[in-house]
């Protein structure tokens, strides 16, 4: 019971940290490099503790992200649903990939997400973004191992402490 609660804390804490990181100001040159933290963290939870992630929850978390970022309401919700759907479908396989293959899968998922976002923005009537638009998925790929190790370590520590 106790362990469950500690895990809950970790889950919600990691989600809150994602929102903060997403809003955090960065120098102008680094802005296009900002990875989509929420997706990375949700990917960890999908792979390691799928009880925490469902399409409905992804939708709601995306909506909250939209409220924070103040863009079109529903934009992140849609992107996160697509992301989590693919992830849940291939979870059984992705879970046992070595780290570098997982990172490549992250890249593919995030690139797919950029295409979805491009479609949404095009429907919204916006211009074609600059080339730097495509950089964030690569940063996400590089960030994935660290997100994974950090969360995994935190979870392992909680487990040891509670045992």
């Amino acid at each position: 019971m106790n362990r469950l609660r500690a895990n809950d804390w970790l889950f919600w804490g990691s989600i809150a940290a994602c929102y903060l990181l997403q809003l955090m100001p960065l120098p102008q040159a680094m802005l296009p490099l900002k990875p989509w933290w929420l997706a990375l963290v949700l990917m960890y939870w999908t792979l390691e503790a799928p009880d925490y992630v469902s399409l409905g929850r992804a939708f709601v978390l995306g909506l909250v992200g939209d409220v924070f970022s103040g863009d079109l309401l529903g934009e992140q919700a849609l992107r996160l649903c697509v992301f989590c759907f693919i992830l849940l479908r291939f979870r059984a396989r992705l879970r046992f990939f070595p780290m570098w293959q997982q990172a490549l899968a992250v890249l593919a998922l995030l690139l797919n997400d950029r295409i979805v976002l491009l479609a949404i923005r095009a429907a919204d009537g916006q211009l074609v973004p600059a080339a730097s638009y495509w950089l964030a998925p690569f940063v996400g790929m590089l960030a994935w191992p660290w997100v994974f190790l950090l969360l995994d370590d935190a979870r392992a520590r909680l487990r040891v402490r509670d045992a």
Partner: peptide
Amino acid sequence: DTANTLRLIAYLALAIALM
């Protein structure tokens, strides 16, 4: 089971309607 296509479509429709 949790990645039911029907549910995905429902959520996508909801998101698009919201947008």
